Computed example of a mutant assay.
Amino acid sequence: MTDVKTLPKPLIDVIAGFFAGIASTVIGHPLDVIKTRLQVDRSSIHVGGSVRIARDIVRNDGTVRGLYRGFTPNVVGNSLGWAAFFLWYGKAQEAFHVYRGSQEALSYYDHFLASGAAGLLTSLCTNPIWVIKTRMLSTSSKYPGAYTSILDGSRQILRSEGLAGFYRGLIPSLVGVSHGAVFFAVYEPLKSWRARMKHEADTSTLDTLIVTTVGKIIAASATYPYQVVRARLQTYDAGAEYRGVRDTMEQIRQAEGLKGFYKGMGPGLVRVLPSVWVTFLVAEKMKLAMTRGFLGGFS
Rank of each mutant, 00 (worst) to 15 (best):
L190C: 11
I129Y: 03
I171K: 13
S173D: 11
L158Y: 13
R155W: 01
A164F: 00
L190A: 10
G176S: 09
L190D: 11
L174T: 03
R168P: 10
P189M: 05
Q156W: 05
K191T: 12
G176F: 07
S192N: 13
V177L: 05
R159V: 15
Y187W: 15
I150V: 10
L190M: 11
T148I: 14
E161C: 07
E188H: 11
V175W: 12
T134V: 14
G165I: 07
V131H: 08
M136E: 03
A185N: 02
Y143P: 07
A146C: 07
V186Y: 06
Q156T: 02
L137M: 15
A146H: 07
E161K: 10
S138L: 00
V186T: 06
V177H: 08
S178I: 00
R155V: 02
V175Q: 12
T134Q: 14
R155N: 00
Y187N: 15
R135V: 05
S149E: 04
Y167L: 00
F184C: 11
S160K: 13
R159P: 10
T139K: 13
G176Q: 08
G145C: 01
P189F: 03
E161I: 01
F166P: 08
S160N: 14
L190E: 10
P144W: 00
G165Y: 04
P144D: 01
L158G: 03
K142Q: 02
P172R: 10
S138V: 02
Y167I: 00
S178C: 05
G165V: 08
L151M: 13
G165R: 12
F183G: 02
A164W: 00
H179T: 05
F166Q: 04
R155C: 01
Y143F: 13
Y187C: 15
V182A: 08
G165P: 09
I129F: 02
F166V: 04
L158I: 02
H179A: 08
I171L: 12
G176I: 04
A146M: 06
F184P: 08
S192W: 12
F183R: 05
F166H: 08
Y147C: 02
W130N: 14
A146P: 06
Y147T: 09
W130L: 11
V186C: 12
Q156F: 05
Y167G: 01
T134D: 14
K142S: 02
S149M: 03
T134R: 11
K142Y: 05
Y143V: 10
Q156E: 02
P144G: 00
V186N: 06
Y147K: 06
W130D: 13
T148K: 15
R135W: 04
A164N: 03
S149W: 06
A146N: 09
G162S: 14
R135F: 03
M136H: 10
S140F: 09
Y167W: 01
G145V: 00
D152E: 08
L163M: 14
G165K: 09
E188S: 09
F166L: 04
K133L: 15
Q156R: 06
E188Y: 11
T139S: 15
R155A: 02
W130F: 14
Y143K: 09
L170M: 07
M136W: 07
V182G: 06
